[in-house]
Simulated assay, not measured.
Amino acid sequence: MRNLKLQRSGPYLVMAPGMLLLLLFAIYPFIFLLTISFQEYSPIQAVKPFVGLDNYAQLAKDHNFWNAVKVTGIFVISTVGLEFVIGLALAVILNQLKWGQRIFQSIILIPIAMAPTVVGLMFRFMMNEQYGVFNYFVELLGFSRTAWLSDPQLALPALILTDVWQWTPFMMIILLAGLKGIPDEPYEAASIDGASAWQSFRYVTIPQLSKIIIIALLLRTIDAFRIYDTIYMMTKGGPINVTSTLSWIVYDKGFKFLEFGYGAAISVVMLILVVSILMFVLRKIDLFDMGGRS
């Protein structure tokens, strides 16, 4: 009888540590975040009055919030799109290499082994108007020096370039793994039918790789929404808020102006926005039924 009880409770005992960690580091922080988003919460105030939906109502009138939504949208679409195109091209090239594949792969993966703060600082020095290497090459081409990070028209593209440099290898390695999992038979059948290299890529590679592509895009989209470290090291949200993303204004409101309640409300809206995008995409591609059909 005791052994039977132990057998039944065994799976729950094994899951208990993981569930406890999930409760401590995911569920409780989210409940706390949601709670303070309905308060005028500040660490310097003894009383944290309940304000209901006032923080959320304030968002609707906050120009900085809507600017951050626009900047985040431009940043996410640009970075994820470029990283996918370049990453897919690199994955296809590496997959065709007969020798030196591991060496080139190791070299290309170096950027994702670096901390975002280090990458941000490195590109900040490289884009310096006075002694940066970017302006050295600009002058070699006969153009004048450019203020990459203080020019409102160039600051966001500079940030996008930095993110693309660091995270394209991440996209590449996922797509390369997917390419290696495609069997040879469909390509052999396409070759017998007289398909060209482009037709094989369009009608064999892309359909076989479609689920991997969606997973890679979703992972990078989630991560791109959270960008903060690189912005802090390179532009600090400027100039004139052109690189101020949702993650940046959460920091700005919460830790600079100590408006924790308002910052929490922005975080909740950001979470809802990300989850809504992901659920929309997952429904469209029917990824929930991924294991049942192919």
Rank of each mutant, 00 (worst) to 15 (best):
M1P: 14
L4A: 14
S9W: 15
G10T: 13
Y12T: 06
L13R: 12
M15T: 11
M15N: 09
L22Q: 10
L22T: 13
L24C: 12
S37P: 02
F38G: 12
Q39H: 11
E40M: 11
E40W: 07
S42F: 00
S42A: 07
V47K: 14
P49A: 07
F50V: 11
N55Y: 02
Y56Q: 02
A60C: 12
D62N: 14
N64W: 14
W66D: 11
N67K: 11
V69D: 04
S78F: 04
V80D: 00
V80A: 07
G81P: 05
G81L: 04
L82I: 15
E83P: 07
E83S: 13
F84W: 10
V85G: 14
L88N: 05
A89L: 15
L90Q: 04
A91C: 10
I93V: 15
L94A: 03
L97P: 08
F104L: 06
S106K: 06
P111M: 09
A113H: 03
T117M: 02
V119E: 00
L121H: 08
M122W: 07
F123D: 00
N135F: 01
F137V: 13
G142C: 04
G142N: 03
W148Y: 02
L149P: 05
L149F: 03
D151A: 10
D151N: 15
Q153H: 15
A155E: 04
L161E: 02
D163V: 05
Q166S: 09
W167Q: 08
P169G: 03
M171D: 02
M171Q: 09
M172Q: 03
M172A: 03
I173S: 01
I174P: 04
G178Y: 02
I182V: 10
I182E: 01
P183Q: 12
D184S: 15
E188G: 10
A189H: 06
A189E: 12
S191F: 11
Y203A: 08
I206D: 07
I206W: 08
Q208V: 10
K211R: 14
I215L: 14
A216C: 11
L219G: 05
T221P: 08
T221V: 12
D223Y: 13
D223L: 13
F225E: 04
F225H: 05
F225N: 00
F225V: 08
R226G: 06
Y228P: 01
D229N: 01
M233C: 09
G237P: 01
N241V: 06
T243R: 00
T243L: 00
V250S: 01
F255E: 07
G261A: 07
Y262C: 02
A265G: 00
A265Y: 00
V268P: 01
V269T: 00
I272A: 09
V274I: 15
V274S: 07
V275S: 13
L278G: 09
F280N: 11
V281E: 05
V281A: 08
R283Q: 12
L287K: 03
D289V: 11
D289S: 15
M290C: 05
M290V: 11
R293A: 12
